[in-house]
Design a protein around this nucleic acid. Structure first.
Lengths: 231, 231
DNA sequence: TAATCTAAATGAACGTCATTCATTTAGTGA
DNA sequence: TCACTAAATGAATGACGTTCATTTAGATTA
């Protein structure tokens, strides 16, 4: 062993340079990537979720990720699936329909209000082979069937509820002064007055009030629109 | 005039090189930028709307745009404003409340279903000094007031409706097979059956059916939730 | 056992994009 | 007349997603 002062393989505490080539045990997998992505997003938001930062947090070169996902979109899909598993569908098993929908919708909005950049992904991507997503939809459908809903309208009702939930998730992130009219207040007196009235009630941008109002309206309306004629 | 064969200032049909420096008359303005951006988006979608392509379509260097907008986000706001002016609020002037809301909501969804990348912009940006947007909100608010709605609930109702509209705009762009369960059909029998039932009814992904169902439910529910107690 | 194939890593490179900056020219106000 | 501002060019920058050649390790096959 000639002139060996610098150890080639160090077991040092800090990020020992890994040499090229397949490592002895795999460093990456869907689970690791998903978990690291979620941690990044939780700490610094979606702006911080880049392939580089993701790789760095996994102590790996960016290109290594592409052995496990085809694109960044794939990473987002992994995260989406993980989050879908957190949506509470338990109420559909044993609670009355209206209450179950309430619990589910609130949970759904709560989960994704911190993940609005995923909404385009969820809304536009086929659910094919997305197990958590499919399990959620199946539980919801089962709850609708249990409540006596006609099968041919269930998907439309779920889609309508989901549309409202997605929109409401955006709303949670709106700034408090989103409806402040500025210099044009004088030209929009009706709106300006209504905004002022609302500000007096709750703080300023109470997304929750609008969500609860819309949710109960949707539930009541759906119930009346579909179930009544079936009686 | 020595050896002048190549004209310095050509009036040729094709893109005569403009030399540096302020031109005799301004080439750009908010109106030109907005119109060019809308044309680009209409032809090739939002993926094609880059600062470079926008500049090229205006026959200008990309950096010239920054004399008129601070960022690409500013361009999106200009486009949003232009589109808000296309939303039909006329029904609030002379039609019954429920019908007016229907007309407005359909128009709103129709306008933005071809512009879903703007939804995060609309949903998260203050309306301050956005005249078209404010005029729309004012007309809607006026319609609610005319129908006897209590002022303190109007904004919440509008926000709830908008949330549904935004979500529904995404839905329009979902692929036809978005609910195809793939290999996991066996594990989600309730959902799979409901999806199959729906496919038999309308074509496949009929976003319109879900929208109409949700819209009438929301309108009925809002009307009952708010107006009834006031009687 | 040797040869071959595939999996999983590195690191260099690329192309696209939004944005900034120095520079140039034209109008405007003191 | 002089300074200032407006509006253009063109070069440069820094992210970011992605690809590719290369390296190494394990798995399969002859």
């Amino acid at each position: 062993m000639p002139d060996g002062v610098l150890p080639r393989k160090s077991v040092s505490t800090k990020s020992a340079r890994r040499r090229a080539g397949r490592p002895l045990h795999a460093l990456l997998g869907h689970a690791q990537i998903t978990s690291a992505a979620l941690k990044l997003v939780s700490k610094d938001g979606y702006k911080a979720l880049t392939m580089s930062s993701l790789a760095k947090s996994l102590n790996v070169a960016p290109s290594a990720l592409y052995n496990h996902v085809r694109s960044k979109q794939d990473v987002l899909v992994l995260v989406e699936e993980a989050l879908m598993g957190r949506v509470d569908v338990t109420a559909f098993a044993n609670r009355p329909w209206a209450e179950a929908v309430s619990v589910w919708a609130r949970s759904y909005r709560n989960v994704f209000s911190a993940h609005v950049p995923l909404i385009p992904v969820i809304a536009l991507l086929p659910v094919t082979n997305a197990s958590q997503t499919l399990l959620m939809y199946d539980a919801v459908t089962k709850g609708f069937l249990r409540a006596g809903w006609p099968q041919e309208h269930i998907i439309d009702a779920i889609v309508a509820l989901e549309s409202f939930i997605y929109g409401s998730a955006y709303d949670v992130n709106a700034p408090a002064d989103i409806f402040s009219p500025g210099d044009l207040a004088g030209q929009t007196p009706n709106f300006t007055a209504a905004v002022a009235h609302r500000s007096n009630q709750h703080g300023a941008n109470d997304a929750d009030a609008a969500f609860e109002l819309g949710l109960s309206a949707l539930i009541a309306g759906l119930s009346a629109t579909i179930q009544k004629p079936a009686l």
